[in-house]
């Protein structure tokens, strides 16, 4: 839908944005959008092929808590922490993924199972409250502005950093889209039995895509934790966090490259608008509208907002 020229212009605008509109608040919102778009795009690696996970909160929690606890207690740099957190998420994904795919759990049963998993991780985090601070969460030790420790007192640093990560996630999306894996997963998504008779290694491909998604989601969680310097099991694990990821991606359109980003941007913008206009008390309101809009959207626009627009423009050609 976007021509090369419009992409360049878009990129230029985004890159220059903090200098044109140096409002810390807007930069903050944009950063949040980039970070969550990174995560929702990573989610969609699985979602677009029919592996709809309602438990990505598990990866968020594993990634963020691993990295942050290692940092707080042992001073480990989050750059390594991010790799370790990602590794934890991948290990978890391997175990659960293998069990699921081996036993042929798909579709809505898969979704329910992942829902339970996200909650298990959340409950485990809360249960070990001595280490993790339980439901109250904990704060990262401050290191001022430090590249090594991935913290900054200037919002603008995280703006560009998370933008970079988002671009990375999109490049990975494109890479997957062009690879042999994409064709295999598409076939699996459409008719698993037929695909298996063609000799396509179903379990193998599902595992690979799950591992990639898990790793990147965990990395995104670390990024988020480093940005807000505070972790808590409701934002970084559990049912609600998992559902929010899935919803942002689906709202925008989980089958397209830009869909998750569009969805994330819309939702975060909406939440902020309502918070600002009506005060914190009415944050619940924005959620109601967004939940209701979601229900309607899921029923009537299965391709999401962006996906439907994309289809619409393609037909016009």
């Amino acid at each position: 839908m976007f021509s090369k020229l419009s992409l360049i212009i878009l990129f230029a605008i985004i890159a220059l944005f903090p200098h044109l509109f140096p409002s810390p608040y807007l930069i903050h919102i944009a950063t949040l959008i980039f970070i969550w778009s990174f995560i929702t795009t990573a989610w969609s690696y699985m979602g677009r092929f029919g592996l709809v996970s309602l438990g990505h909160g598990a990866f968020l929690g594993l990634g963020a808590y691993t990295s942050s606890l290692l940092f707080n207690h042992y001073g480990l740099t989050p750059w390594i922490g991010l790799l370790l957190g990602g590794l934890m998420a991948v290990l978890f994904a391997i175990i659960i993924g293998y069990a699921c795919f081996r036993f042929g759990v798909i579709g809505d049963y898969f979704a329910l199972l992942t829902l339970a998993l996200g909650q298990v991780v959340a409950l485990t985090i809360i249960a070990f409250r001595d280490i993790t601070g339980g439901s109250l969460g904990f704060t990262l030790k401050s290191k001022g502005t430090s590249l090594l420790y991935l913290q900054s007192e200037e919002k603008i640093h995280f703006y560009y950093l998370s933008l970079g990560f988002l671009i990375l996630a999109m490049l990975v999306w494109k890479w997957i889209d062009r690879s042999k894996m994409q064709k295999a997963l598409r076939a699996i998504g459409e008719d698993e039995i037929a695909a298996s008779t063609l000799g396509i290694g179903i379990i193998r491909y599902k595992m690979i895509i799950t591992m990639i998604s898990a790793f990147m989601t965990a990395v995104g969680a670390v990024l988020y934790a480093q940005y807000v310097t505070y972790l808590n099991p409701f934002t970084l694990s559990g049912v609600v966090a998992s559902l929010e990821i899935a919803f942002k991606a689906i709202l925008g359109g989980m089958f397209s490259l830009w869909g998750p980003t569009v969805g994330t941007a819309l939702i975060i913008a909406l939440e902020e608008y309502i918070r600002v206009s009506y005060g914190g008390k009415f944050v619940g309101f924005s959620q109601i509208i967004y939940g209701a809009a979601l229900v309607l959207l899921i029923i009537f626009l299965p391709k999401g907002i962006y996906g439907t627009l994309q289809q619409f423009f393609q037909r016009k050609k």
Partner: peptide, 16 residues
């Protein structure tokens, strides 16, 4: 709607 869509729609209701 397929079962997954139904599931998601009802999950949306949870939020509402």
């Amino acid at each position: 709607a397929n079962p997954l869509t139904q599931l998601l729609a009802l999950a949306g209701l949870i939020i509402v």
